[in-house]
Design a binder for these strands. Sequence first.
DNA 1: GAGTAATCGAGACGGTACGTCGTGTCTTGAT
DNA 2: ATCAAGACACGACGTACCGTCTCGATTACTC
Lengths: 179, 179, 179, 179
Amino acid sequence: MAPRKQQEIFDATLWMVAEKGYDGLTVEGVAERSGVNKTTIYRWWPSKAALLGAALVESDVLAFEPPDTGSFRSDLVALVEQVERLLTEPPGSDIAVAALAAAVRHPELDARRFFADRFARERVVFERAVRRGELSGSADPLLIMDLLAGAVWMRTVLRGMPLPDGFAKKAVSALLDTF
Amino acid sequence: MAPRKQQEIFDATLWMVAEKGYDGLTVEGVAERSGVNKTTIYRWWPSKAALLGAALVESDVLAFEPPDTGSFRSDLVALVEQVERLLTEPPGSDIAVAALAAAVRHPELDARRFFADRFARERVVFERAVRRGELSGSADPLLIMDLLAGAVWMRTVLRGMPLPDGFAKKAVSALLDTF
Amino acid sequence: MAPRKQQEIFDATLWMVAEKGYDGLTVEGVAERSGVNKTTIYRWWPSKAALLGAALVESDVLAFEPPDTGSFRSDLVALVEQVERLLTEPPGSDIAVAALAAAVRHPELDARRFFADRFARERVVFERAVRRGELSGSADPLLIMDLLAGAVWMRTVLRGMPLPDGFAKKAVSALLDTF
Amino acid sequence: MAPRKQQEIFDATLWMVAEKGYDGLTVEGVAERSGVNKTTIYRWWPSKAALLGAALVESDVLAFEPPDTGSFRSDLVALVEQVERLLTEPPGSDIAVAALAAAVRHPELDARRFFADRFARERVVFERAVRRGELSGSADPLLIMDLLAGAVWMRTVLRGMPLPDGFAKKAVSALLDTF
DNA sequence: GAGTAATCGAGACGGTACGTCGTGTCTTGAT
DNA sequence: ATCAAGACACGACGTACCGTCTCGATTACTC
């Protein structure tokens, strides 16, 4: 089941969070902007966070296609670059940063689901690498992704610093090569 | 200059973020709990974020001592474990997670300063390692810390997953050893 | 359109002006006393003055019936006595005095309307007198009412003095008889 | 005893009540405008109303010289015209209207004193008239003044109407001549 | 094509907190 | 002795959204 103007509602939601941040996102605003009554929104989503969560999942702002470049190393670089893009290029970045930072305090927003989905698709890169013999079967893909993606989050979102050129390559190299 | 009951105000503030999260933190609540009038708080801090920022700086929840175990590897493990502790052990963790997640959305809160301070102190571990010949002078300490600390943030805060035993050791190993 | 508890709101409003005067009348107080939320009051009336104005119009504190005693002189005396009563007998007097004094400062409250309404009804006394030949058609009813009613206002409200017995009769006599 | 900058304080008070009305008059504003600390004002006058009262008494806005034209009738006309001027000509009118209307709810403002002072000086007109044989000794001067001055108040302040030309003369005539 | 659910718009409402303004009190230190 | 400076508790302001509710009015599916 879905409200008749679901698409308009999601659009308004994403536009609003991108424009004014998570705190500036209001159900009332979304209702007005999407030509829907506030009640209708509450009929379908229990909270602002849930609404945003649904909008994010349904939207393609966070869409993501795992790379398949032929080599494990360059696949990894591509993965990191995708995270970079997500966190830095507007409007996706505003949405991602605002929404996911907010997710911390709002389990309903279900950041978990987003990250789990994403990891499920990133995983194939590792499976291919194992199949190709580029990676030991005992390697821990989740750990590797946490290290790499986490580095991008740290640098951009938490430290609020710009990413230097070649960050992805350097990060992957720090992992795969010996110091 | 400082309000007469600054300490009570800060205590109430930190207690309240820990208890109810950043969104549940209200100036009115802090005022009531600290036996101070709302106006007094507004006289000194322009916003909720600024108040929390000041309370954090003044508190020791985020205090941190860089390890010196004798070897680079175990220093790194210790550093990671400190991040783990910060993000998982109450009551600090509630405050840290709430505050830092909030900081992302509120520049006035200035998460940058916290992370910069922290890195300045983490850096000595790398300098010692270089001096001891355990680490090449061309290594990038900031990148390494971003990878390691970022992994902890990813796993605990963003993925909302518990940290497995030996996470710190595994993370450091993934970095320092070849796959 | 009207709020569901309009009557309670008006009652609370009038009670509060009578009790504490115009300055002591607060929207918050009215809200509490009428079991309504503050926002509801603001939804319907833009200001304290507007609220009081509406409450007055709806109430019968200021209600008034023109006398018809048979003679012009005693009609006039009766009119003056009605003004006396309005300005001195509780609880109406508290409301009337507070409200009308407030009206002077707050055009939205529109004292003009009250006085114009009242005069329109007082006028019939003069018309009857002219018809009966007791009063010249060239007499100025508004001026006469201003002199008489104004005297009561002066004495009671502005001078803050009690009205002596027979005040109405003396005032009318001062007007109609030669010195 | 008097504060050192009493004159500045009174000036600021009168200017402010003329400019913004009684409600817009604030002790804080007066303090700022007169270059005095709020505390100083409270040291000398217990309330806003008392301050305004003192300022009015001390000022010459309400100053008043009883006429002495030679005849009772024209003295009366002159008296009424003085009331007219007080209530209609700025800036005195703003002050008078705002302040005296406010006096209703604020006995401390002591409108009584103002009216009593004024009447004491108006009285001489009546005494002269009695001495000259123009007025019976049994006439009630207070009643006459209440009728005349009250009419001006009614018309201008309460009815909010402009005074027609010759109002004073007509009012006096209504009183002194038979209909 | 009519009947019956599901869905919706409109908007009033109680409620919490906001951030601001003015009140009147108080303490400290300077003149 | 008088004052400026300014912190403070307090009460109220008027506003913004929250999430809930009732009431018709539309839809749109089903028979």
